[in-house]
């Protein structure tokens, strides 16, 4: 027994501070949050315990998922995630592919594409709010004005103020900011493929397309998966960019994270917690299979 302690004790002692902190502030608070989401704490008086609150099980979840307002938020979230994900993956891959061939000024382009990531969502949101101004015709500004100057006025639209697809317009600045990051991931992936493999393929008579299709793409799939997971979970948590361009009360740009904020501000802690759990589950659906996959890959 003492020998076992001697073997396990020091490492356990060393990692225990972080274990405890993560245990309390991540898993402990998730547990408390789930507990709150299953109560009927919808008023300030119940939140402070002055009025009784009781356990109601999954009622808040069923109510939320049945409400048209929350369904609208979820629909917005899906639309935003799809546009954001497809946009960054396509742009990032194309840029990486272009820069992969030795090109002059590659370093400059790489920095130019990466720079937007250094800007905070709040700061870029302030600028994009102006660029995405929904006025058309005489009062137009931002991109709509640019379209007029370029002689393509039919491209003008009301951007994020479109009640059905407005949220997709907010994905544009997000794509602008994170395409460079995806590019860097893919570029690292390209550089990680030994030149010999390409040469071998060419010697065997593979066309340039076949070379990409059968030699390079399969080697890039782990990178692509990481990019999808990273961008996907960022997208699901989208809040700051939306708050900075739009306002929390605007119906057209509501997503679950904004709902959570509005519920919390109105002392409706139970529903806010329920939205938080729903978001956590959605993110988990994306991330857990990825973690399982990487764990298996590491083992083998």
């Amino acid at each position: 027994m003492p020998r076992q302690i001697r073997r396990w004790g020091p490492p356990l002692l060393l990692i225990s501070p972080s274990l405890i902190i993560i245990g309390v502030f991540v898993y402990g608070l998730i547990a408390i949050n789930i507990n709150t989401s299953m109560t009927d704490i919808h008023t300030a008086a119940q939140a402070t315990g002055r009025k009784p609150s009781e356990f109601v099980g999954l009622v808040n979840y069923t109510d939320l998922l049945a409400s048209p307002a929350f369904q609208h938020s979820l629909r917005n979230l899906v639309l935003y995630t799809v546009v954001f994900l497809v946009g960054t993956m396509v742009m990032g891959f194309v840029w990486a592919w272009l820069l992969d061939r030795p090109a002059r000024g590659e370093g400059i382009f790489r920095s130019v594409y990466l720079f937007p990531m250094a800007v905070s969502f709040i700061a870029s949101g302030v600028v994009w709010r102006w660029l995405l101004n929904s006025n058309q015709g005489e009062n137009a500004s931002g991109l709509n004005r640019l379209f007029q100057i370029l002689g393509v006025p039919f491209l003008q639209n009301n951007w994020w103020n479109n009640v059905n697809y407005g949220i997709a317009a907010i994905a544009i600045p997000a794509i602008w900011q994170l395409s460079g990051y995806v590019m860097a991931l893919f570029l690292a992936g390209f550089r990680g493929i030994p030149e010999e493999l390409r040469e071998a393929g060419r010697i065997d008579g593979a066309s340039e397309w076949k070379l990409y299709r059968y030699v390079l793409f399969p080697q890039l799939s782990p990178v692509a998966l990481s990019a999808v997971v990273i961008i996907g979970h960022m997208s699901l948590k989208a809040f700051d960019l939306i708050m900075s361009i739009s306002k929390p009360a605007n119906y057209q740009t509501k997503v679950p994270a904004v709902d959570m904020y509005v519920f919390k501000s109105a002392f409706n802690y139970a529903d806010a917690a329920a939205v938080g759990v729903i978001l956590l589950v959605i993110v988990a659906i994306l991330i857990v299979p990825y973690l399982v996959h990487t764990a298996r890959a590491e083992k083998s």
Binding site: R129, L132, N135, Q136, N161, S246, K247, N250
Partner: peptide, 10 residues
Amino acid sequence: MSYTNTDRDG
């Protein structure tokens, strides 16, 4: 509301 500016929500 029909008389108002279209960029109001921003």
